[in-house]
Design a protein around this nucleic acid. Structure first.
Lengths: 305, 305
DNA sequence: ACAACTTACGGGGGCCGTAACAATT
DNA sequence: AATTGTTACGGCCCCCGTAAGTTGT
């Protein structure tokens, strides 16, 4: 299998069009058609419905793997290139919105004070953008957060290719507007809130999919979707009574107009994990080390790969 | 990049010989030489030292990625094939030695009683064999254990391609022979044992590499290496005073001739994770569900991918 | 001198582009 | 009728095998 074929496949799937994909890849659409046909023949299964162009079940599975393979090949290329031509040390940190906490900021501070002239940047991005950035080498380190059961890893398969370290865990809270009927309680169980109106803000907090998975099979109908990476907007919406949201307790604490009640069941946590390219320059290594040393870090040593 | 080139590369690296690899791949060694040369040209870096044939630093990095890519491509092929031609339901469970506990056994029992004629097998294998088996579809589900800091995921990058769920965590203990000078203590800190003689049994317990990573940079010189998957042999060696070992507390409890002291610092746990192919037949799904329902399961719902 | 990897060269297969064809809207 | 995907065909490139060359032991 040639990776170009996989790239063609994912492009076609994304464009939902052979001709558009051909255009994007600087090929003729005949070539694209032939590549897809050859791929289907080799795997012995139909991968795409035509007209409209939509992946079949087998196609969806392949798509998932193909994306990861392409990402990993990119990562390999980047690593090898970096080894043979180490550029000037820079620090590019990518983070999903709630993953960049005070300790991360301290780590940036520590690195910048140790490498005075260092060109450093911090990007707050969607989770997938962080994963892709780290994989392709645009980012030196990535911080991703998620809502998981205490014993589960974050499910970022895209970054399975990279070094992974657990960094911190934090309790979760349900954010309610101040006047909410349940606002007087001491704690909440997710089960009691299945039918409540929820705000689905997958980029910021735990997505409703996560909650559904954690709760078993609850409904959790979204009352309002909130796209983008802005926490304040989400809190404002909660405060305005537009729905509930699950957010880390530390984030909820200072917020106005909302009440944050501990979520006691199921046992979920907000976890931050650190991902980084397997080849780091001194600045990147310094960041990781600084985060390691930072106070209140629950983590201790063991690094995945 | 063609995956055949990657396969050639890993084969050459494994054989440490162009000609042996050519033989294994049914190619001429000239073809192998050309493929490697082309790969090196494309990546712009030397990947292998010649005579003797040993990977360069860049080669080692690429090797790592290449293996994962090939595994994933295999997995994709298996999944697509399984979708288009679902065979008879079978259950093949693979497990690293200490990952198969009473709850796993119960889950097997549950599945077999629900599907009476089911052809079921359990394989206890090395961790890498489990990972490969699940990825290539020979195993429906895999159970892997490891020693990690409480917040870290197990670092099995090879199986990042699969569904992952945390299953259970268990405290760790240091196993000492009964007469050992420290045997009277209530608990131990890893730091105090840096210079003790350790038995390195990476297939069974936490490998010394794991301990080193967890402790920071301690020495942990291996006094004796114990290969293979047999727990009793390891315990017997400890009892005979050949060295110490870190093992899960539950395993240590019943053992004769050894004293198991809780390991209180650093905060490490023995974690078992469940991996499975993303496409499961009823038997496989039944196993996962049964393990979910099993008593004392710490896990709750959230599944990675 | 031998074993092992590299380079040179010729043949064949595969892949892309052009172009004609088919199918769906 | 127009747009989009498929099939047919021809040329080119790439890749493999044979065979000669080079290098390290």
């Amino acid at each position: 299998v040639d990776s170009r074929v996989l790239r063609t496949f994912v492009t076609v799937a994304r464009c939902a069009s052979f001709s558009a994909a051909a255009d994007e890849l600087s090929l003729t659409q005949a070539a694209v058609s032939q590549q897809i046909a050859a791929l289907e023949a080799e795997l012995g299964a139909s991968l795409l419905h035509r007209r409209p162009v939509v992946p079949t079940e087998a196609g969806r599975r392949l798509l998932h793997h193909a994306r990861a393979v392409l990402l990993r090949l990119d990562a390999a290329r980047v690593e090898v290139a970096r080894l043979s031509a180490p550029g000037p040390a820079t620090l590019a940190v990518g983070s999903s919105p709630l993953a960049f906490d005070a300790r991360a900021a301290e780590a940036v501070q520590a690195v910048r004070s140790r490498f005075p002239g260092l060109e450093a940047s911090v990007y707050v991005l969607s989770r997938s953008a962080v994963a892709e950035g780290v994989a392709t080498g645009r980012l030196d380190v990535g911080l991703l957060d998620g809502v998981v059961a205490t014993t589960d890893p974050l499910g970022h398969a895209d970054v399975g290719l990279l070094a992974v370290e657990g960094v911190a865990e934090d309790d979760l809270a349900v954010a309610l507007p101040v006047g909410h009927p349940l606002a007087g309680r001491a704690a909440l169980r997710l089960h009691d809130l299945v039918d409540a109106p929820w705000i689905d803000a997958p980029d910021v907090a735990g997505s409703l999919d996560d909650l559904r998975a954690a709760a078993g099979s609850g409904a959790f109908a979204p009352s309002l979707r909130c796209d983008g990476c802005d926490v304040r907007a989400l809190l404002a919406l909660v405060s305005a009574g537009q729905g509930l949201a699950v957010i880390p307790a530390s984030v909820a604490r200072g917020a106005e107009g909302i009440v944050a009640l501990p979520l006691v069941s199921p046992r979920l946590v907000h976890r931050i994990e650190l991902f980084h390219a397997t080849v780091l320059d001194e600045a990147g290594a310094g960041f990781v080390a600084a985060l390691d040393r930072a106070p209140q870090a629950l983590r201790s040593g063991q690094s995945g790969r």
